[in-house]
């Protein structure tokens, strides 16, 4: 979303907590006394996000409810409202101090109701159906938040769900099979989509002020491993991986074998034992670089988003995929982010 507020240049901000009407998903009145909030987002967590809000008020609520954290940002003549996150709030814990009463509300992801319901064992997404649409329908059955699909993909086989599989687990099974992502925006709207290929945030010299003062560079630990031996005693088979690469740890480079031994592996989609060994070698020796950094808040950057850096002098260069975020709201909005280096 194009924004008139320059989030890198400095702006004044105020926050408020709005109750959300689950039927219309629109704001349904303010819950006063907002003091601070923190949001945690992680793409490896099925629920993707959680958070907590501290209110300086005597707010009391007996049942869970949906609430949206909004930020009013002002910079010069520009004045904008941005939804930071929408969460399913549990009744809070109340702390009385000399300064008054603090209430802390604990928020779960809007996806939470889908992780609270289980499918009947043997339920399946049929071969040939639109997997994205099926995933959307599963979510729509459980959660009041708007859910949509950005595109479609066809299932090449039936996907059958085991006993105890939650609706949310089923959705992730479908998305993982297609290499798709899921995002939750500040309004709490859920979108299943292909892995984003366009950057949601570009960090370059021009807007370097968005970036914090410290970038932690982790180029990954190179596993000292160059051969995977896989045995299948049941069929009297033993194979070795074929190393097609020229890495610093390969046999060609160091002149000796460093082995990983596995027995009776689980083969995926009819792959051979040899293909399994080759795949495992790649998986075990793939170097994943990560960047951990702080930055000022910017709209529409979520786990799975692409962040593009062009500041090679500080090691912040190339495309990165956001893995996790921690957002602190109070005196401004600040994001601690971990991103995986691509390519």
């Amino acid at each position: 979303m194009a924004s008139a507020v320059d989030f890198g240049a400095g702006y004044s901000s105020s926050f408020r907590l709005m109750r959300v009407d689950p039927a219309t998903w629109a704001d349904a009145g303010e819950i006063g006394g907002f003091a601070s909030a923190s949001i945690e987002r992680d793409r490896s967590n099925d629920l993707m996000e959680s958070g907590s809000v501290t209110l300086m008020s005597n707010y009391s609520q007996r049942t869970e409810f949906y609430a949206r954290i909004e930020m009013l940002a002002e910079s010069g003549a520009a004045r904008e409202r941005h939804a930071i996150a929408t969460l399913l709030m549990s009744p809070g814990t109340c702390t009385a101090t000399a300064g008054g009463v603090d209430v802390e509300l604990v928020g779960r992801s809007v996806l939470a109701p889908a992780s609270d319901r289980v499918l009947l064992a043997g339920t399946y997404a049929p071969l040939g159906c639109d997997g994205a649409a099926y995933a959307v329908s599963l979510l729509q059955e459980c959660i009041p938040a708007p859910v949509s699909a950005d595109g479609s993909f066809r299932l090449s086989d039936h996907v059958v769900f085991a006993r105890g599989t939650t609706y949310l687990e089923a959705v992730w099974m479908l998305l993982d099979k297609a290499g798709w992502a899921m995002t939750i925006d500040g309004q709490g709207r859920v979108t299943v989509c292909p892995m984003p290929s366009e950057p949601a945030l570009v960090l370059n010299k021009a807007n370097a002020r968005l970036l914090g003062t410290e970038v932690q560079i982790d180029d990954g630990t190179t596993e000292l491993l160059n051969r995977v031996i896989v045995a299948d005693p049941e069929h009297d088979q033993v194979v070795e991986s074929v190393d097609m690469t020229d890495r610093p740890t390969s046999y060609k480079s160091i002149g000796r074998y460093v082995d990983l031994y596995e027995e009776s592996p689980t083969l995926v989609d009819g792959e051979s034992l040899q293909a399994y060994a080759n795949r495992r070698l790649v998986e075990e020796t793939t170097v994943t670089g990560k960047r951990s950094y702080g930055r000022k808040w910017f709209p529409d950057v979520h786990p799975f988003s692409l962040v593009r850096g062009s500041m090679a002098d500080i090691g912040f260069d190339g495309d990165m995929r956001v893995l996790s975020q921690s957002i602190e709201l109070g005196a401004g909005a600040y994001v601690s982010e971990v991103a995986e280096v691509l390519g």
């Binding site: 099925d46 599989t165 687990e169 992730w172 099974m173 290499g179 292909p194 892995m195």
Partner: peptide, 24 residues
């Protein structure tokens, strides 16, 4: 259109984020 880098990343993501699926 997906770049080669993104394709490689997608493949890696499939293995990195593979969630423990249930069995019964």
């Amino acid at each position: 259109e997906i770049s080669a880098g993104a394709m490689a990343e997608m493949g890696r993501a499939l293995t990195d984020t593979t969630r423990a699926s249930r069995s019964s």
